[in-house]
Design a protein around this nucleic acid. Structure first.
Length: 779
DNA sequence: TGATGCTAACTTTTT
DNA sequence: GTTAGCATCA
């Protein structure tokens, strides 16, 4: 037996050594699925299958890169470079780049990210004189996206009885027309959005049997990672591509399906055996990642879901530590607790920064952790959020490049036509757009003839100048490489100079970012080919690639010794020795959007399962009594998922900050004993927004200054908390941390009273929740 | 026409 | 608490 197969357990080997015919690998969390997948590909190649005939699809670029690397390692050569391996979106973009003309698109089509898409939608909505409060671009985009992921074009959409009813009921009967217009506009702009990369790929295969045959023949072996997260479009495409050879291998874990909001359907994995008769099924149930305690919790939690393939994860690893459950008063306390715990663990158990991950439900939750980590000088990195390519200065620069490559691209044109300022104002632009729409020509074509829009004089001249400039860049495309073009664009448009002259801190950062972009393009042009036969180093390919990159894909700094912060979604597929699962509160996790639907709730539970199974040795669950959301304090009950963790696996002696606060703890003890019953509505009356319309700049400045000089207050020796019921406006009170202050205002209902107290030595005005804060009445 | 300051909307999750 | 988009002023 080959060495690389010896490293696998029996089940893993069975899967990896399988050659022909459909295969489904049901791989529990941490069961070594990437190892199996990579070994299988290497094995296929060892058996003489040409790398050019293997297609492997993943959900992130990072996963793809990692797989490629591992395969190279097994094989000891660089044959893996010839594999077709990448995300669904990037692989299909690559194929479409070669074939797009067959469905009427330019091969240098632009890829619209969701910002571009929404911006175009907004234009369309406004042109129809519709209210964009009702037809919110975000909402419309969501509907269109869902339609495309279900392979439903505008016509099908408008003919679908059920959908029409839904739209009528929501008061948006014109959604279908917006969809049609948006699609037409994208087409006119030579642009595809993310969903089009799947939808148009499908269209291509359906309309052009010759193309289908070509790729069916080419991809003799198809492997798909994270199959539980595929949607209908992906499913159909795979089905078509694999129909001839049926050498389809899918790997997935129904328990980790967490992307239904993107159209993924768990059905795909559940029905695989029906789709492919005689499919071989291998279950991987041995977990190599976590301790027994962690796994027990995970198994128990996921067992509460109804719809699933039965599995039982087990491990050889020791029992390990119990989970630690932590309650804090506020989100800031939660942040402080986590940072302290990291510092402590580093000392006590010799962990490194990179051994820790802080995982949350929503990106917005990162703030309190950032602050507290910074305070303790613990380096960290946030994954997700704004990617490099979404920064304004980068988008501006890239917009130029996009126009050069594809002048039909209306969104990019709009972005740069008057940036840097060249005297083409809003009115001129709108006129041209109207003409373009009337004549159904592209914005760019309309710009060639400004007189059609009734423009003359300075405006027309400015447009003419602009057009000439862009043309001169386009002329370079055939002769020069991507970097030369980009460099010339930066120089000629004064973009780089303008940023260089901005000497502010942000300006400097922007300048550096643009330099980094230029460097990246240079690197791209100079790196030798790594891909299969379809390589080309043009600017167009480059632009398509970067649109599909996310922040998580940023190369190379794997080994940086930093604490990692990311959403649970982003953490899927990763593992960390120590995991903090934070913000376990009702309305956050589970999210408020998913409380009223069994299926949504089960997806949240799978998300909880995912976060638990990220941990190798230690796992903390934490939640806060109250936290700032949208700038005001909100109270949430502890997450129902906490109740679902069996008591015997929880370490409660470790109470975090909660131990000291008797009132809160007592109230909480009752809450934690609740069993899995539908809970009463949390008392969440909306509070009046912070009053005071006129904001006095001087006062705010003074306040900020005061905050900076907080001196730590030492509580009086006889400090005892007074009953909040007794407090009234105008009273002088003492706070253990902020010192002595005066109650300026009381608001909120009987159980949620909030006092605005001014502390002259404690940092100015504070809003304090009387139910939790300890205050002593002085007079 | 451009810069500045204010309001409102925002939070699920991502290719 | 943040940010995008809008209105107002220079």
């Amino acid at each position: 037996m080959q060495d690389y197969l010896k490293e696998l357990n029996e089940k893993q080997r069975e899967a990896a050594a399988h050659m022909d015919g459909p295969l489904m690998i049901v791989a529990g969390a941490g069961s070594g699925k990437t190892k199996v997948l990579t070994t299988r590909i290497a094995h296929l190649m060892k058996q003489g299958i040409d790398a050019f005939n293997i297609l492997a699809l993943t959900f992130t670029n990072k996963a793809a890169a990692e797989m490629k690397e591992r395969i190279e390692k097994i094989l000891g050569n660089n044959e893996a470079r010839n594999l077709y391996i990448g995300t669904f979106h990037s692989v299909f973009a690559r194929i479409l780049r070669a074939e797009a003309h067959k469905i009427g698109y330019p091969n240098s089509f632009t890829i619209y990210d969701s910002d571009d898409a929404k911006s175009l939608l907004k234009s369309v909505i406004n042109e129809n004189n519709l209210d964009d409060k009702l037809y919110k671009p975000q909402y419309v985009y969501g509907r269109i996206s869902a339609a495309k992921n279900n392979l439903m074009g505008p016509i099908e959409y408008m003919q679908d009885h059920f959908i029409q009813q839904e739209d009528a009921r929501s008061g948006r009967p014109l959604l279908g027309q917006l969809y049609a217009q948006y699609a037409a506009r994208c087409f006119r702009n030579g642009a595809m959005d993310f969903d089009d990369l799947l939808f148009k790929m499908y269209e291509l295969l359906v309309k052009h049997p010759d193309v289908l045959a070509k790729y069916q023949h080419k991809f003799r072996y198809i492997l798909i990672d994270e199959y539980q997260d595929t949607n209908i479009a992906q499913y159909q495409i795979i089905k078509m591509l694999g129909a001839v050879h049926e050498n389809i291998c899918v790997v997935g874990d129904d328990a980790q399906s967490i992307y239904s909001f993107r159209g993924a359907t768990i059905e795909n994995i559940l029905k695989f055996q029906k789709d492919y008769e005689g499919a071989k099924v291998v279950k991987l149930e041995q977990n190599y990642r976590s301790t027994q305690n962690i796994l027990n919790v995970a198994n128990k939690v996921i067992g509460l879901n109804k719809n699933q393939i039965p599995k039982n994860l087990w491990t050889d690893n020791g029992e390990g530590e119990k989970l630690k459950l932590v309650r804090t008063l506020t989100d800031n306390d939660e942040g402080r607790f986590v940072a302290d715990a990291i510092a402590e663990q580093k000392l006590r158990n010799h962990y490194h920064n990179k051994d820790f991950a802080i995982l949350y439900r929503t990106n917005a939750q990162s703030r309190s952790f950032e602050e507290s980590l910074r305070r303790l000088n613990i380096p960290y990195r946030i994954f997700g959020g704004l990617s490099f390519y979404q920064r304004k200065e980068i988008k501006d620069f890239v917009a130029y490049l996009r126009v050069v490559v594809n002048p039909q691209d209306e969104e990019a044109l709009k972005r740069i036509i008057n940036y840097p300022v060249r005297g083409i104002g809003k009115t001129s632009m709108e006129r041209v757009i109207i003409v373009a729409n009337e004549q159904n020509i592209t914005f760019w074509d309309a710009l060639q003839q400004p007189q059609l829009a009734g423009l003359k004089g300075a405006a027309a001249a400015a447009i003419e100048q602009f057009v000439i400039m862009i043309r001169s860049f386009q002329a370079m495309l055939t002769k020069s490489d991507a970097y030369e073009v980009a460099f010339t664009v930066g120089k000629h448009t004064n973009l780089v100079k303008e940023l260089y002259n901005d000497k502010s801190v942000e300006g400097l950062a922007r300048y550096e970012n643009v330099q980094e972009l230029l460097n990246a393009i240079k690197e791209y042009t100079e790196t030798p080919d790594e891909e299969g036969e379809l390589t080309d180093k043009s600017l167009g390919t480059y632009l398509q690639n970067i649109t599909l990159l996310t922040d998580a894909d940023k190369n190379g700094d794997e080994d940086q010794d930093v604490v990692k912060l990311m959403t649970i979604h982003a953490a899927k597929g990763l593992e960390f020795p120590c995991v903090f699962a934070v913000g376990l509160e009702e309305n956050i996790f589970p999210s408020a959007m998913s409380l009223y639907d069994r299926e949504d709730l089960e997806e949240e539970r799978r998300l909880f399962y995912v976060v638990i199974t990220r941990a190798k040795h230690r796992l903390w669950l934490s939640f806060a009594n109250s936290r700032y959301r949208f700038g005001s304090l909100v109270q949430n009950e502890p997450s129902r998922f906490i109740d679902e963790v069996p008591q015997e696996y929880i370490d409660r002696s470790f109470a975090g900050l909660a131990g000291a606060r008797t009132g809160a703890v007592a109230r909480n003890a009752a809450a934690q004993q609740r069993t899995f019953t539908p809970r009463e509505k949390a008392p969440q009356q909306a509070r009046p927004a912070a009053s005071g319309g006129t904001s006095d700049v001087a006062r705010v400045m003074a306040q900020k200054q005061a905050q900076a000089q907080i001196t730590t207050h030492v509580p009086s020796a006889n400090f005892t908390a007074s009953d909040p019921e007794d407090m009234e406006e105008g009273m002088r009170v003492e706070h253990q941390k902020f010192g002595i202050g005066t109650i300026k205002k009381l608001e909120g209902g009987a159980h949620n009273r909030i006092a605005t107290i001014s502390f002259p030595t404690g940092g100015g005005d504070k809003k304090i929740m009387l139910a939790y804060a300890k205050l002593m009445i002085l007079s």
